[in-house]
Amino acid sequence: METEQSPIASIHNIRQMMERSSRFISLSGLSGIGAGICALLGAAYAWQLKNGLEEAGIDYRSLAFATGSDLQKQLLAAGACTFIAALCVAVFFTYLRSKKTGVAIWGTTARRLLWNTSVPLAIGGIVVYRLLDLGLGGLVAPCCLLFYGLALINGSKYTVGEIKWLGYCQLVLGVINLWMIGHGLILWAIGFGVLHIVYGIAMWLKYERNNNN
């Protein structure tokens, strides 16, 4: 038979069960670091394109915002590759962590997290598509940051809560970008690159370092 628990042990038990059953806790800090590095590599590639054109005396900005230009196509392709690479890296490290902690990666909590981040991201995708269609390329960068920030804040209820701070920072960068059209590249490098790495390191130090030893 089981022995009676002390009130503190009971409360601890209740809290743990509530969190484990409602939040996806396998999200690894290393995922953030990996995704951030992918974003920086993508930004470096775009930066090179930009420098090449500027040296040739071509106005990079108007070309990047011109719907259908070769440069815009290149940038969109680079963006898509970066996004896919970052996603794969993030899933990989989270998979490793879930193996280590013995929590299944796919379940109710993962489904809920995915759904709650996918909806704002998908809507953001539609908005960006329409912006490009209408020749409003300058708004694409801030909109990506804004919708991503909102997706993170929405998803934070279903995973490690700290991720909402990452979301708020993305929103701040997105709003700044609205008044600094044409500086999307540097703000993206900060938002998707540097902030992810900072967040990832902080999370790794807080939750994973001790468990590794």
Partner: peptide, 29 residues
């Protein structure tokens, strides 16, 4: 009834979830 760690665990999990199936509960507890 809540003396047992398992029953307390089940109750905690169903408090914050709309519905859990047998396998999900088994994995959690």
């Amino acid at each position: 009834i809540f003396d047992s760690r398992i029953r307390l665990g089940i109750m905690s999990a169903v408090m914050v979830n709309e519905g859990l199936n047998f396998n999900e509960l088994k994995e959690l507890i």
